[in-house]
């Protein structure tokens, strides 16, 4: 479990190093102790906190949707959102650990949550991917892709989640804005 968390928050060389070191230790107590120390070490890295923030933001979109009126009794929507959220979280877990890429993704997500205008323009997200691709940053593309999933997460008809598609109509997600602006 701890090893999983280490891998989740520390991509790249040091995450692999810690997991391998933990796996090589004999004795479950010593192993657990070392693994917890590794987790503390991982959390000293800014990239780990950015990744944590990304997880929280990815999870917040369906959470906001489902805390809206009338969504609790919609099992189909629940399954759809569950599957898509897990897909998003897995994508975040595999995204690039570089601070700049994650920070960019974070700003994009925040913009999606806060601005109906951004949500209404999925082509902007495609532009982000195109720019990243042209700039030759292969890993930035993966991060941009993850952030774009926000737009594809769910579509809402009235108060009911009906499927996964590109959300073009900002009115469909208007209750997110209402909830965010409640005192």
């Amino acid at each position: 479990m701890t090893a999983l968390l280490i891998r989740l928050f520390a991509r790249g060389e040091w995450g692999r190093a810690m997991v391998a070191e933990v796996a090589a230790i004999d004795g479950s107590r010593a192993r657990r102790r070392f693994a917890l120390g590794c987790l503390r070490a991982v959390l000293t890295r800014p990239a780990a906190w950015l990744r944590l923030a990304m997880f929280a933001l990815v999870a917040s979109v369906p959470a906001l949707l489902f805390s809206g009126p009338g969504h609790g009794a919609d099992p189909t929507g629940l399954v759809i959102v569950g599957v898509v959220t897990i897909t998003c979280l897995v994508a975040v877990a595999h995204a690039d650990p570089s601070v700049s890429a994650l920070a960019g993704g974070l700003i994009w997500w925040a913009a999606l949550l806060l601005s109906a205008t951004v949500r209404a323009h999925p082509e902007w997200a495609l532009a982000v991917i195109a720019v990243a691709a042209v700039a030759g940053r292969r890993r930035a593309v993966s991060t941009a892709f993850v952030t774009c999933l926000a737009i594809f997460v769910v579509s809402v008809e009235g108060d009911t989640i009906t499927g996964i598609r590109v959300v073009r109509n900002p009115d469909k997600l208007a209750h997110i804005d209402r909830r965010l602006t409640l005192p």
């Binding site: 810690m18 070191e21 230790i25 070392f34 917890l36 070490a41």
Partner: peptide, 18 residues
Amino acid sequence: YGYELGKEVGLEAGTLYP
């Protein structure tokens, strides 16, 4: 290795790896 180095200098992984 990280583990034996940590034991040698008496440091926990949380201090050693940073």
